[in-house]
Amino acid sequence: MRSRGIRIFSLLLIVSFVLKLSAAGNYQEQVTATTLVIGSLQQSTVLLVVLGTLLLSHRPIAGSREDGSIRLHLTQPQTRFAFVIGTLIGRAGAMCLPVVIGCILNLSVGWILYGTVDLFAISVSFVTVVLYVFTGTSIGTAISVTAPTGRIATLGTIGYLLFGVILWPATGEILRPAFSALLPLGSAELTMFVRRLSPNRAYILVTNALAAVGNSAAPWSRVISAEAASEHLNLAAEGVVGTDELWLHPGIGVLVLLFWTTVPLGLGFLTFYRADIS
């Protein structure tokens, strides 16, 4: 907790938990205490964890290549793989501490405000948050390990935030004409599937399932509100394509998170493994 960034992140996380938990009270009559607690957890962390993990992890390796401190690491008897994994675990671990403390705080206050919760569902949601922290940190580390300078790493991070997070929901719509041309009968499903492939959508999907609000990848509050039903997002998943479709299963969200945790970093490592540190 020595890092100023981590301290600011912890503060924002606690403020976010308090606000979202309090706002969740609006749905108290419609859903269980477990849904309220996991739902507020989802809303508090879905963007904050992405931002926090990326900010903390996108520069260390690229920055150390730029300033030369990486030479002191890589001349020690350790492999580049161990160096990268050590960086990932160190950064993710530093982020997990405030996140887990926030989760416990959220659970405690939620329990007091809204009543008894399902501890199993809550525990699994904690594990999901930790996985989500690792996913964000791994993407940031992948950017850091690939970029030769800190500035390029920052640009890569902005690019990811823009296209991988903010504009991702639009990606499916943009690709829809192409999907329609390729798969006239399945373009709607494919569009919806593509939307679910971003880490934050996958995280929402899994936490929605744990909160018992179905298999939507839309934020839980939109799913349970009457307004959301009239919007285009897939509250709707059940009504549109049915729940027995494998690609709509919440477990797919876990696979998507694992994909983003391993594949970008794996590809980044391949470039770093043989890179000249000169």
Binding site: L72, P77, Q78
Partner: peptide, 17 residues
Amino acid sequence: LSVRERVGALPDRFDVF
């Protein structure tokens, strides 16, 4: 790795942590 286990290095153009 076997090389670096046997070598102590003072590299050029390094920066401290």
